[in-house]
């Protein structure tokens, strides 16, 4: 087990390196750089050239890359020229808000998705299944900004029950979290439903029925646990997606999260912040994947024994 974790962490370091490299190249592929964007369209060519020299942007890309990697290994992620503070500090100051939103949204999505998925998957093609499946597809198809605006219209403007924008209290969290949770609920519910419907065809489910269990006992006690591996996988992936920050939801609700910071930094060619954010998200995703793998082993003893051998 420990060997598996070690292997995964080593692989994770490799993934993070790849991610950093990719981002390093991609942000520099965009036309314009820090010097030209920061100085604005009125700057002269000499001023821009001087700024480029000062920022080290006139060096060959390979030299810039190697010196950047060297600094990253010493945990120096550079300065944000735009914000005037260390890039990682800027990222970390926004991360808690995104984390809060993600945890709230995924918690809702997991609870609601599992319950709805069980209701639908217990009787595939039954009435509940048909209603829930079509609702889930609609939920997944609605654009997030539209759902967010609708929720604001109903709950903030019409009912005046919840604040429409800003952060800081639990009531501020509700609308953006629900907006993010709705499509995630649909994803979790649909996957739970199909995986469960498949498990309900398995032989051990018939055995459980032959013991005189009720359908609910069969589902909860036998079929569900064996259907959860794909659900855990998708939860891990989707949590990673949400942790990257949702630009749209953050904009609609004026939520001070990672998404808007990244978009603003890309627009300003604030390379240091974009790279620091990418590194942090990659690290979180690596940890999430490791957690998902450890969960598989808990769900399926065959994986546990295979990894220990």
């Amino acid at each position: 087990m420990m060997r598996m974790i070690g292997r995964r962490l080593a692989l994770g370091a490799f993934v993070m390196w790849g991610c950093v490299t990719l981002i390093f190249v991609i942000v520099r592929l965009a036309p314009g750089d820090q010097a030209s964007v920061a100085l604005g369209p009125d700057a002269t060519a000499d001023e821009i050239a001087a700024a480029r020299t000062r920022l080290g942007l006139d060096e060959p890309l390979v030299v810039q890359y190697v010196s950047y990697l060297g600094r990253v290994l010493r945990l120096d992620f550079g300065e944000s020229y735009r914000l005037g503070q260390p890039a990682m500090d800027a990222v970390l100051s926004r991360f808690p808000a995104t984390l809060q939103l993600t945890v709230a949204a995924m918690a809702m999505a997991i609870v609601a998705g599992l319950i709805l998925g069980c209701l639908a998957g217990g009787r595939p093609n039954g009435v509940v299944d048909r209603v829930l499946s079509s609702t889930a597809i609609s939920l997944q198809s609605f654009p997030t900004f539209w759902v967010g605006i609708m929720l604001i219209l109903v709950f903030a403007l019409h009912l005046r029950a919840l604040p429409s924008a800003g952060s800081g209290s639990l009531s501020h969290l509700v609308l953006p979290a629900v907006t993010l949770a709705l499509p995630q609920t649909a994803i979790v519910a649909r996957l739970t439903r199909s995986s469960l419907a498949e498990s309900m065809q398995d032989g051990y489910v018939q055995t459980a029925r032959s013991k005189g269990l009720t359908e609910r006992e069969v589902l909860v006690g036998h079929a569900l646990k064996n259907s959860l591996i794909p659900v855990v996988t998708i939860i891990g992936i989707q949590t990673g997606v949400l942790l990257g920050g949702s630009v749209v939801v953050e904009n609609v609700f004026a939520w001070p999260g990672l998404g808007s910071l990244i978009v603003d930094s890309v627009a300003a060619r604030d390379y240091a912040v974009v790279q620091a954010a990418a590194l942090l998200i990659a690290g979180v995703v690596v940890v999430l994947n490791l957690l998902a793998d450890l969960t598989y082993a808990r769900l399926d003893p065959r994986i546990r024994v295979g990894a220990g051998a």
Binding site: D202, Y204, Q206, T207, S210, G212, L299, R302
Partner: peptide, 22 residues
């Protein structure tokens, strides 16, 4: 359901598929 398991029980053909792997 009460009869199942307690009065009439069943042994299935494929024991690997019929036992819960988890």
């Amino acid at each position: 359901r009460q009869v199942r398991g307690r009065e009439i029980a069943m042994i299935f053909q494929d024991p690997l598929a019929s036992l819960n792997p988890g």
